[in-house]
Computed example of a mutant assay.
Amino acid sequence: MTYATLPASRLWTELTTVEAAALPPETVALLPVSAVEQHGPHMPLGTDAYINRGILARMLELLPSDVPVLILPEQTVGTSQEHLDFAGSLSQTPTRLMQIWTELLACLANTPVRRLLIFNSHGGQSGLLAPVTLDLRVKHGFFAAYASWFDGGYPEGLFTDEEITHGMHAGAIETSLMLHLRPDLVRMPFSDNFASRSIALDTVVSQFSANPGGGRMGGFGWKAQDLQPSGATGDASIATAEKGRLLLDHLATKLATLIADIGKVAPVYGDGR
């Protein structure tokens, strides 16, 4: 499918106002949202932002040039209240963050764009995505979608089931991605197997989990140090750049497919036109 009036750039900030006013209504405006927070002793505060940028960059390489998507300015600081006891972590309150995302995306009503996607790379704010997109649908008529990279699954055999379930923060998964994307920012001598207390918890209770789902009904409000004194969870010592490369390609492919899928779903469920 070919669309008219596609700008040369994929970045919203590089458009002129004339180009923004002439965008095809089928354009998907993607808002990257991430976080600035501690990632243990071996990873940078901006890990979630670097991972988000890396997935988007690879996705744009894979996406056909005639699929209309534009990347909005990254919202780097998220809500990271569970990490605030660790130096360097920054946070908005959840209600304020939802307001920021909503008000920013509502501005697109002054363009022809009616298809939005919030792309998230921080688990602590994934629960905010659905109400924001629904609000944008109800109040402005947008087709508003959301996605988080960690919902895209993992290549078979790349990480153990335990690491996928309990290595939620700066373990083998995120460390591997960063070893591929920004090895200069990873302090591997300080990496370790940061075993999460959630592993032991899952052996003594049947319905509570730090990461509920998969048959476990109950979650609870935890701070990072409740799960691991270091603030990290997972076996960062087994991370490799090659695992990161394979995972990045997997996730970028999933995201490119999702963006193409919006073109099929939005006309059915409404995109403000």
Rank of each mutant, 00 (worst) to 15 (best):
I71Y: 06
A145I: 09
P212W: 01
L158K: 13
V77G: 04
V265M: 09
A145F: 13
H169N: 03
D48T: 04
A224I: 08
T203V: 00
H250R: 12
G127S: 11
S91C: 08
L134W: 09
Y269H: 15
S91Q: 08
Q81S: 12
T76A: 15
V113M: 04
L63G: 06
L227M: 15
V113R: 03
A252T: 03
L45M: 13
T79K: 02
M1K: 12
W12I: 02
V33G: 02
T16D: 09
L129G: 00
S191T: 13
L104R: 11
V36Y: 04
A21K: 12
S34R: 04
D226S: 09
L116A: 09
N52V: 05
D135R: 07
D184C: 09
V33D: 06
M188E: 14
L185F: 13
S191E: 10
G219R: 05
D192I: 02
L258S: 08
Q81W: 06
S9T: 15
T27F: 01
D85C: 05
D261M: 13
F159H: 00
L116W: 07
F208I: 01
L185T: 11
P155E: 12
D235F: 05
R114P: 03
G54K: 02
F86D: 00
P183I: 04
T233L: 03
Q228D: 08
L134P: 05
G157Y: 08
P68A: 10
A241H: 04
T160G: 14
T5A: 14
R137V: 07
W222S: 14
D48E: 01
L45S: 06
D66Y: 12
D85Y: 00
N110D: 15
L116T: 04
E26D: 12
A256L: 05
A130Y: 08
A200E: 15
T95G: 13
L31G: 03
G40V: 03
L117N: 05
N110A: 11
R58T: 00
T17R: 15
L246Q: 15
D66G: 10
I199H: 08
I262W: 00
P64Q: 13
D235A: 02
T16H: 09
T13F: 08
F143Q: 07
A29Q: 01
S126N: 13
R273A: 14
T17I: 14
L246W: 10
A109P: 01
K223H: 13
Q228L: 06
F194T: 06
P183S: 13
E19S: 08
L255R: 01
P44I: 01
F194E: 04
R53E: 00
W222L: 12
E174N: 10
H39K: 03
Q92H: 15
P25F: 05
E14D: 15
A224K: 07
W149I: 04
